[in-house]
């Protein structure tokens, strides 16, 4: 009995229990894109890892603290980022963005992963543009956050992913 189970362990290990390439060759589909926008995390301060339909995961770990942005308009917005992960194979499909206004209204966007088809990207641009028409400076404030994240990711990959790469290291 024991050796049978053990064989099971080894077999799975052979297949690789962890996604080696976190994009896994699999990209966000339009259907998933639409679905992801409906995924809601109740409390971003507490809910750092949440499963949906036992098939997708929203994972806040890796994104640090929430961003708070107050622009020239003096209105404080909160932005929380979550990785959208396909549970099967731990494939990173995109980034879900929760944008909470000073009145508590929340807008949800889903930035596709790099490999997403052009149609999904186009839909994302249309969607954030549409939100921007309703919520003034949405795209501008989002661009601050995404710029900083891009800066951090480039810095991290420039460091070869080794050593202690802290978000504060560059400041």
């Amino acid at each position: 009995m024991k050796s049978i189970l053990f064989a099971g362990v080894l077999l799975l290990a052979g297949l690789g229990v962890r996604a080696q390439d976190s994009t896994g060759g699999r990209a966000l589909t339009m259907e998933e894109y639409e679905k992801a926008k409906t995924f809601s995390v109740a409390d971003p301060d507490k809910d750092t890892y949440v499963k949906f339909e036992n098939a997708y995961i929203l994972d806040h770990n890796g994104f640090g603290k929430p961003y708070f942005i107050t622009g020239d308009d003096g209105k404080k917005k909160r932005i929380d980022l979550y990785k959208l992960i396909l549970k099967d194979g731990r494939v990173e499909l995109g980034t879900v963005i929760y944008y909470t206004t000073e009145t508590g209204k929340r807008y949800t966007a889903c930035m596709p992963g790099y490999k997403a088809p052009p149609a999904v990207w186009r839909k994302y641009f249309e969607d954030i543009h549409a939100i921007d028409k309703e919520e003034q400076f949405f795209v501008l404030k989002l661009s601050y956050v995404l710029s900083e994240e891009l800066g951090y990711q480039l810095y991290r990959s420039g460091m070869g992913g080794g050593g202690a790469v802290s978000r504060e290291a560059g400041t």
Partner: peptide, 16 residues
């Protein structure tokens, strides 16, 4: 949420 954890997670992903 501690920042250390986040960085480590990112780091690992990069390494993998």
């Amino acid at each position: 949420m501690g920042n250390t954890i986040s960085r480590r997670t990112l780091l690992r992903r990069g390494a993998v």
